[in-house]
Design a protein around this nucleic acid. Structure first.
Length: 739
DNA sequence: AGAATCTGCGTTTTT
DNA sequence: CGCAGATTCT
């Protein structure tokens, strides 16, 4: 016990040992929030205040759930580990899946229902639109997908959506059709997992009471990222904070809320505090990650936001090194400089994997990759395709899905003609139409189909039936192996010239299945029920898309977006592209909330660094095929001067290209000067203005001329006003003053 | 059915 | 500029 609580700082200790009440823990970056969460659970269990099965811990990512579990089992003695099985630890979606499987009948679902990931959902919507002959120009599938998910996250079924215009009325109709389709196919999308579970608990009192009584302590990680529905879900489980309900222990950081665009609702923190009359708001402000200068910068930046719950990070470590700031002439130079800097760090013994290159948007990685590649520095980029998202994997999973649930039209459509077996668009169209009239799934419609299309399709149906019959008694990995062969997938990729890697990935599914079997701890119950384990495995594949492509072991520099970096930390961080319009991104200009979220993003980025932080920007950058001249980011100005050290002399903010290359030697780059003359030398007369120049506009403020075209009365210039956006202005009309 | 060509688009994305 | 998705061509 004393072991457990040793080395906690006073605030952490207070949080861990709070009496059984609702609590909000404001955990700053690097303040040891996972430690508090795990220790809290261990303490509750060890002091006998709660049985393991009375604990529910919710996270957002599988990674976080796994970490929680791993650290917890390190804390609890073995005897507790036996019973730690009783704890429910998982993601919102994982827990919902579990609840829905357990109560599928009450939730109106077949036991082997399938889960659609975002890509599957989009495919399902496209299929729906086609079947209904809806013009997908007027109703873009992606937009409809977003609409449907937004309604579900607001807890609304189609009948409850208020539609004030024809457009929305039609979208609601499509929402209804989509639901019908999903129900017919026995599939459930991510948002549906949550809403379905919420409705189950809300409507079924015995079940609700059961779980409300069972879970005495509900702990939530990354609470700032919860959406409205997730919060309501928690509220329901905790019996709305009533006497006798569970204690909600929410850990989060409003300053690190960066997923508003995805429905995250920071306001949940305030609502929670109010609605649950939270008496204990504890701030974890001591940071164990970064040196003082880095934290001071982070604090200074985030102070510019309004409506914060308030928090100030501090450290016992020293101030450390100054933050290094670099201004480059162009994006290429910025990348080249970063590479040089990395080389020198590596020479000094720094390991490449301790260095991270962060950027606001994925498009920025290209220049960096180019330079790293030509310098021969190992690197890896996060954010590529994940294992279960690869097409060959999706194909294999589709066959497996058909075994578990033949009515899954998404799976059916994906592989009915893959590998090709002569089932063309015409046959499929006939099938779709027939399915519509019979109101049955594609699979179930096949027997009704007469004529030639019927024959080829019937062969496919027979294939699936054979697969199902031949695999009922097989252990999961062997089942997968059999399907890979019998489906013809293996043969197909064997004959492909680029198929080698895909073949290896296919084999990897067998491993994934074996691992899953090991982790799931093969239930006798599940084994008795043919293919129910398969359904569990498929749910697992949908809910956990796997690692973001990585040979994690190798010593490589890590490249990722700032979003992807949340929760990670590195000795050295390079944050590049600190330019108005890029970071903060121009699309965030419309609302203040947008700008504040960008600032939180900046805060996240800065607090990733342990020892050394580099901030850089370029005067010009290639974007969408044309050179843009950006002002330096306002976030740079928000860092107190004393914390930074400029590696290149600062030019006045927003000054366009300096006349020279600066103090840094620029090896003459073949082609650069010739192909793209320096802005200053391109001083075509545009009413005394030239590209790269800083100007002022009465309404949009300060901006940089990005490009120009036309002449005389038609002359117009494109100006980057930073967050106010990039605009084309007619010189004859707009009043522009040199700034 | 598969290749070749064209078009449009262009933050961030835990499940 | 570089990519993905759609369209058109063999």
């Amino acid at each position: 016990m004393s072991d457990l609580l040793a080395n906690l700082n006073p605030e952490q200790l207070q949080a861990v040992t709070l009496p059984p009440q609702h609590a909000l823990i404001l955990a700053g970056a690097g303040s040891g929030k996972t430690r508090v969460l795990t220790t809290r659970i261990a303490w509750l269990v060890q002091t006998g205040q709660v049985d393991p099965q009375g604990v529910l811990a919710v996270t957002f990512t599988n990674k976080a759930a796994k970490e929680l579990l791993a650290r917890l089992s390190g804390m609890l003695p073995l005897s507790f580990n036996q019973s730690s099985r009783g704890m429910w630890i998982g993601t919102f979606h994982g827990l919902c899946n579990r609840l829905l499987r357990a109560h599928h009948r009450d939730a109106g679902l077949p036991q082997l229902f399938q889960i659609l990931d975002s890509a599957d959902q989009l495919a399902a919507i496209k299929r729906l639109l086609k079947a209904l002959n809806v013009d997908d120009e007027k109703f873009p599938p992606r937009e409809l997908q977003h609409f449907i998910n937004a309604q579900k996250e607001a807890g609304l079924r189609p009948h409850a959506v208020e539609a004030w215009d024809d457009y929305t009325r039609r979208r609601v109709e499509l929402f209804t059709e989509y639901e019908t389709q999903c129900q017919r196919e026995s599939v459930v999308d991510f948002a549906e997992l949550l809403l379905r579970t919420y409705e189950l608990l809300e409507r079924n009192e015995p079940i609700r009471r059961h779980y409300q009584r069972r879970f005495r302590h509900i702990l939530v990680d990354e609470f700032q990222d919860t959406n409205r529905l997730q919060y309501r879900w928690l509220k329901l489980l905790a019996d709305g904070g009533q006497e006798g309900g569970a204690c909600l222990f929410c850990v989060g950081d409003d300053d690190q809320s960066i997923y508003r665009f995805r429905g995250a609702e920071v306001g949940n923190m305030r609502d929670f505090e109010r609605e649950f009359r939270v008496a204990n708001v504890i701030r974890l402000e001591q940071n164990y990650r970064s040196h003082g200068n880095i934290l001071d910068a982070a604090n200074a930046i985030i102070r510019h936001n309004t409506g914060r719950l308030g928090k100030n990070l501090w450290t016992e470590r020293g101030a450390g090194e100054p933050i290094r700031v670099f201004e480059a002439f162009a994006d290429i130079d910025e990348a080249r400089w970063i590479v040089e800097e990395i080389q020198s760090l590596v020479r000094d013994g720094m390991s490449r994997s301790d260095v991270a290159l962060l950027y606001r948007s994925n498009a920025q990685s290209r220049v960096l990759e180019h330079q790293l590649f030509s310098a021969g520095i190992a690197y890896r980029v996060y954010g590529g395709l994940r294992f279960f998202e690869r097409q060959e994997i999706k194909h294999a999973l589709a066959y497996l899905r058909l075994i578990a649930n033949a009515d899954d039209d998404t799976a059916f459509s994906r592989v009915v003609n893959f590998p090709t077996r002569g089932i063309g668009a015409r046959s499929l169209e006939a099938l779709q139409d027939a399915a519509r009239t019979w109101n049955t799934s594609l699979y179930a419609t096949v027997p009704h189909l007469a004529g030639k299309p019927g024959t080829v399709l019937a062969q496919f149906v027979r294939l699936v039936e054979d697969l199902r019959r031949d695999t009922t008694r097989l252990p999961l990995p062997e089942l997968v192996d059999h399907v890979l062969d019998a489906s013809g997938l293996r043969d197909f990729y064997r004959s492909e010239k680029e198929g080698q890697e895909r073949l290896e990935n296919l084999d990897e599914i067998i491993n994934a299945a074996a691992n899953f079997l090991g982790e799931a701890g093969a239930d006798a119950e599940a084994l008795a029920q043919p293919h129910s384990l398969l359904a569990d495995f498929l749910a697992h594949a949908s809910l956990e898309a796997g690692e973001h492509q990585a040979d994690a072991g190798s010593d490589a520099v890590q490249l990722m977006t700032v979003h992807a970096s949340k929760g990670l930390e590195f000795d050295v961080v390079f944050l590049s592209g600190l330019e108005e319009g890029l970071f903060p991104h121009e699309n965030s200009a419309l609302e203040t909330e947008g700008l504040e979220e960008e600032r939180r993003l900046m805060y996240v980025a800065v607090t990733r660094a342990r020892q050394r932080l580099y901030l850089s920007f370029a005067q010009s950058r290639m974007l969408h095929g044309q050179t843009r001249y950006n002002l330096r980011s306002r976030f740079l100005e928000e860092i107190p001067q004393g914390l930074t050290k400029w590696l290149s002399p600062p030019s006045p903010r927003g000054m366009g290209a300096r006349s020279g290359f600066g103090q840094r030697m620029e090896p003459p780059r073949s082609g650069f000067a010739a192909k793209a003359p320096q802005p200053s030398s391109r001083s075509q007369d545009f009413g005394g203005l030239r590209v790269g120049q800083l100007v002022k506009h009465a309404k949009f403020g300060q901006g940089v001329i990005v490009s120009a075209e036309g002449n005389g009365a038609d002359a117009r210039v494109q100006i980057n006003f930073g967050v106010a956006g990039v605009k084309w202005l007619m010189l004859a009309i707009a009043k522009l003053d040199p700034a």
